[in-house]
Simulated scan of single mutants.
Amino acid sequence: MHKIFRYIFIFLLFNIAILSKEPTLAILRSVDTNEYQKFSIGMYEFICRPYGVVTLEELFQRAEANSLCQTSINEFYLKNHMQRYFAQNLLKNRQTYHIEFKENRCILYAKGRLSMSELLIQNGLAFKKPNFKDKEFEHSFTQSQEYAQRLEIGLFKEKIEKKCVSELSKF
C-alpha cells in the first residue's frame, strides 16, 4: 500500500512539473519607439511589438503620404512630444521583463500584470485591433480603450480614430 502512494505521489509531482509553465524572461536592450523594443534571451536578440493593438507609429507607417491621418498623428506628437517617448520613459534598459509570444507579437508585462499593449491603449497611444478576438485579453483591452475614450486621453482627445478610419479598416 505504501508503494502505491509513493508512485501516485511521484506521478502527481511529475505532472505538476510538466504542467507548470515558467515565465519567459527577457532583458531589454533598447527602446526604439512605443512600438519597437529590442530584447535578448541569452545570445538571441529580437524585436518585440505589442500584441493586439495598432500603435500610432504603425498607423502612421500604413497611412498614405501626407494624408489626413498622417498629418493628425504628426500634429498630435508636436503637441504631446513626450508621448512619443512613453515606452522609453516606462521601460528601463538592462531590466528583465516577463514576456509571452503570440501571433508574431509580444505580450510584454511592463508594469506588474499590465501589458505594454494595455498601457499604450490607456494612454491613448494605440487602438485595440478592430477584429481582435482573444478571450484572454479582449476584455482588458476593451476596458482600457473605453477608459481612454471616456477621459479623452491621447489620440481620443484629438479624434485621430475618426481621421484614420480607412487605415484602421486595413487591420
Rank of each mutant, 00 (worst) to 15 (best):
K111T: 01
K38Q: 08
Q83F: 13
Q70D: 09
S67A: 04
Y44I: 08
N93H: 09
M43Q: 15
T96L: 13
N104R: 14
L59A: 11
K38N: 09
M82C: 11
R84C: 10
D32H: 11
H81G: 13
R113P: 05
K92G: 03
F46Y: 12
E57Y: 04
H81R: 15
E100S: 05
P50I: 00
R113T: 13
S117E: 02
R49L: 07
L68G: 10
K92A: 04
Q61V: 12
E45M: 10
C106E: 03
L68Y: 11
E45W: 04
L59W: 07
K92P: 01
R62E: 13
L59G: 06
S72T: 12
N123T: 03
Y44E: 10
L90Q: 00
Y85K: 15
V54N: 08
Y36S: 10
I121Q: 04
Q122R: 14
Y85A: 11
N123R: 01
N74R: 15
S30M: 08
K102S: 11
E100W: 02
T33V: 03
Q83Y: 07
K92W: 05
M116S: 00
G42S: 06
A110S: 07
N80S: 12
A63Q: 07
M82Y: 12
F39L: 09
N104A: 14
Y51K: 05
F60T: 09
I107C: 00
C69L: 06
E75P: 03
S67E: 08
L114H: 06
N104P: 01
A87D: 01
G52W: 02
Y85S: 13
N74P: 07
E103Q: 14
S117Q: 02
L119P: 00
I99W: 01
